[in-house]
Simulated scan of single mutants.
Amino acid sequence: MNPLEWDMPKLLIYATLFCIVFSRASATYALGRGLIAGASRVKATAKMQGERYRQACRLIARYGAPVVSLCFLTVGFQTMVLLASGGLRMPLRKFLPALAAGSIMWSALYGTVGFVGFHALRVVWEFSPLLCSLVLCALVAGLTGYVLYRRIRSRETSVGEAGDARSVNEPVIK
């Protein structure tokens, strides 16, 4: 599903990608709004109790709609920002322009260079499957190490905050 290989005019490719991401992001926002409305009985609210969701709420509370636009340049955090926007009941008059701007950025990025990494991986595989496998293993190991590091650090921070009062100079948003 590489948009670089679609047999369509570029403008139509961008419009298609825009519609896809706009629809998905709007549905995530609506889910966030719906979950807050009566969601103590729904299993999906577990996502809304995690640290990433709280971080997204803090960012939206501090900076507003631009966070929604910029979240489209992230991987993984985008869903939490969209859920938090709905959960915080961001007004549609602010959400929709931010959503449109973010969707335009995402579709332009995805439609032009989004698959360059996959193409590079295919070229490396054709050159040397062993080298490609080693690179992929190193990337997976690095990502796993990073995730574990963040989880351990998050737990240490949670334990530290529970026992100590927050310092006045400590930043609220990390």
Rank of each mutant, 00 (worst) to 15 (best):
C19K: 02
A61F: 09
R89N: 13
M8A: 09
G32D: 04
G142A: 00
R166S: 10
G102L: 02
P66L: 04
K43H: 05
E161M: 04
L92P: 07
S128A: 14
L143N: 00
C71V: 08
Q78D: 08
L73E: 04
K10E: 07
R122N: 14
F95C: 03
L83Q: 02
Y29Q: 06
F115Q: 14
V172N: 11
S154T: 09
T157C: 12
A65H: 05
S133C: 12
S167A: 14
A37Q: 04
A162T: 06
M1I: 14
A56T: 03
G50I: 02
M8T: 10
A61E: 15
F77H: 04
A39L: 01
T144M: 00
P66K: 04
G114N: 07
W106G: 01
R155V: 03
P129H: 14
Q49T: 07
L17H: 00
A108D: 04
A37R: 02
K10C: 07
G86F: 00
R151H: 02
L148C: 06
L59Y: 11
L99V: 05
A100Q: 04
E5A: 12
Y110R: 13
I173Q: 09
A101T: 08
N2K: 11
F127G: 14
L70M: 12
F18V: 02
D7R: 10
S167Y: 05
M105E: 05
R52L: 09
V168S: 13
Q55I: 06
A108T: 07
R33E: 09
S158R: 14
V113N: 10
A30G: 15
A120W: 12
L59S: 10
F77R: 07
G87K: 00
L11I: 15
A46V: 05
L130M: 15
A25G: 12
G34Y: 01
Y63E: 10
M48Q: 03
I173K: 08
T79M: 05
A120V: 12
V67H: 03
I36T: 10
A120Q: 14
G160K: 13
F115H: 15
L35N: 02
V67Q: 02
F127E: 10
V123Q: 13
V123D: 12
E5F: 11
V124D: 05
A61C: 10
K174S: 10
A120K: 07
S23G: 14
G117P: 08
Q49I: 01
R153S: 06
F72P: 00
G87T: 01
P66M: 06
L83F: 08
L35D: 02
R150W: 04
K43V: 07
A165L: 13
K10M: 15
L12Q: 11
F77T: 06
S154F: 06
S133P: 10
Y29A: 03
L99E: 00
R33N: 09
W106M: 06
I60M: 07
V135F: 06
